[in-house]
Design a protein around this nucleic acid. Structure first.
Lengths: 346, 346
DNA sequence: GTGAAAGCGCTAACAT
DNA sequence: ATGTTAGCGCTTTCAC
């Protein structure tokens, strides 16, 4: 029933030319008589030819595929992996990353293979995948700073680009945000609107970005004469934001301004504040981080530090493409500047 | 610097055997002397050999890769594509789908390539991708019922499995949920707790699942003597839930129970109700659908109709695997039963 | 149980 | 401008 798929040979015969000529037409190489080009094109049409990618890859040593790996640090059992995927995508942040990456890849006919690497075994699989030449390189988004994957990739000399600077230096390109500057913007804004009893819900402190956001917030406040800043550590999830805000409020009921290290936690904070009878922003002002979709849907809409995630993700993909092409050889860091988006919450 | 990657030939030479023997060992084919197996294994170790997948694919005609395509019906411009990806992942539903799929694929060394098909051009790319043999089949998750992609895939006789039954019959396997039964559960629960002024926030009515949830809700109420049910159409997004609830409340201020067609909209409904001074569930009871992560984090936690998404997604992947293997040939429908999860909102 | 050899479908260097 | 040809690295009969 399912007949053999037409090959270059078939098209060549049909068009009355050689394989090479058909190949040239398919790959858009010049130096082919327009007449013949048309001839070939029609033959392709008639036969319904589609070039076999495996055969092409075998000789070009390119797959036009990149691994998009979401990487954790842990050594989670395989059972937890399922949940890992779901958890990761629960943060709108990753949707934006994917959007940005796909936006760059697709016009170039590059395709992302989704991989999760939250265990040692899974990391090994990623390496094998690349060494088998199933993908030309890797885009790595780590959920923890001490993720071992980047170093493994660098050691194997496999093309890879990271989202966020790794905690220990690794000779790989990465894109990142000036987190300190973002936290600085948040602090200045809260102070400017008159808040004097500030607290912060940090991200997980084993993540470099969290540390920097916290440090930036503290530094700015210190410079304005607030040496002590109450901190509650969260996990970038909604629940953790809720817990952290409750904790903060218990310890410092007089709090009148909060900086949350991401929007999800900021939303949690708003929920708790409302439940405890505090008006946002009248009684307590809240500033988030990311400017994700929930910043707009949150009640009240969040004043937040905008991270140009899509742009960063696209840039990451571009860097990888350049490394694969050999156009770029040295590891490069690209750091983006955040900006404050003022809405209702502060 | 970057030396040629070791091939089967290199390993064979190193081990002092033939290519064929090494191949047999690599592919775990019996009838190889244990002694020699060990010999070969060591040679592989020493050389750091990794089989070239393109070469293997060329002869096996398998890539061990499947396309995971998120498909819209529209003819969105390419510009909107970026946003499409982000929007899709904003619903935790897709995270669960991905989790379920990956959970099945990974233990079998199968890998998903992420594709978005929201325009005619993008759909054509998916077809081409498969016809080039870059993936062995497709897992399709449509956002609209009148998605043209399933029919295209079926016509091209490409292996594919759908999430949700397509609006017009297509000879492809699919998994689905008994949506009517789910809505029935919701209705019965609301009635049982004493609600008498019921309304519903439906999903987009061009989606079959939305229609069925609505129909199921209506039917059950009708059977209990409530022939008329106020409906506000939403779009499965938080905003649309907010808008719809506000609308419903304007038209029927006496409403004491609401069934929302997904949790995201249920959350929006809760927000609006609280803002308008209604207590949930005391004044208005709310039932959601999906039992996604937000059902737990929502204030109050949502009573909702559980859809076993991960399980469904895994089953979808399994069906595809069977079709690819040729173990299964006829299109098969697998319909899952929902169950009610009672929390605080109703 | 193991080896020899024939392709899989394509690209690219070389020849014409 | 077009054709000829030699591989790319692997699996898989088919002999032995």
């Amino acid at each position: 029933m399912s007949r053999r798929a037409p090959t270059l040979e078939d098209v060549a015969r049909e068009a009355g030319v050689s394989r090479a000529t058909v190949s040239r037409v398919v790959n858009g190489i010049r130096n082919v008589d327009p007449q013949i080009q048309e001839l070939v094109r029609r033959a392709i049409e008639r036969t319904g030819y589609a070039p076999n990618r495996a055969a092409r890859s075998l000789v070009t040593r390119r797959t036009e595929t990149v691994a998009l790996v979401v990487s954790g640090a842990g050594d989670t059992s395989d059972a937890g992996q399922n949940a890992f995927a779901a958890r990761v995508f629960a943060d709108p942040f990753f949707g934006r990353v994917v959007g940005g990456i796909v936006g760059f890849l697709r016009p170039r006919s590059l395709h992302p293979v989704l991989m999760f690497a939250e265990s040692a075994e899974a990391r090994e699989e990623v390496l094998t995948y690349l060494r088998q030449g199933r993908a030309d390189g890797a885009l790595v988004v780590s959920t923890h700073a001490d993720d071992p994957l980047p170093a493994l990739l660098a050691d194997a000399r496999l093309p890879a680009v990271l989202f966020a600077r790794p905690s220990r230096p690794v000779p790989l390109s990465y894109v990142d945000l000036a987190h300190r500057d973002g936290a600085h913007l948040a602090a200045e804004h809260l102070l400017a609107r008159g808040c004097r009893r500030l607290g912060t819900i940090s991200g997980p402190l084993d993540v470099a970005a969290s540390q920097e956001r916290l440090a930036g917030f503290r530094d700015t406040l210190a410079r304005h004469g607030h040496p002590y800043v109450p901190v509650a550590e969260g996990g970038f999830t909604l629940d953790s934001g809720i817990t952290a805000m409750a904790d903060l409020l218990d310890r410092h009921p007089e709090t009148d301004g909060v900086f949350a290290a991401n929007d999800l936690m900021a939303q949690g904070a708003c929920q708790v504040l409302r439940e405890r009878g505090r008006r946002v922003p009248e009684d307590v002002a809240v500033v988030g981080f990311d400017d994700s979709s929930i910043a707009v849907t949150c009640r009240p809409p969040l004043t937040t530090v905008r991270q140009p995630v899509e742009e960063m993700a696209a840039r990451m993909a571009r860097l990888l493409d350049e490394h694969i092409d050999g156009v770029r050889t040295d590891p490069t860091a690209v750091v983006f500047e955040p900006e404050l988006v003022v809405r209702a919450s502060a």
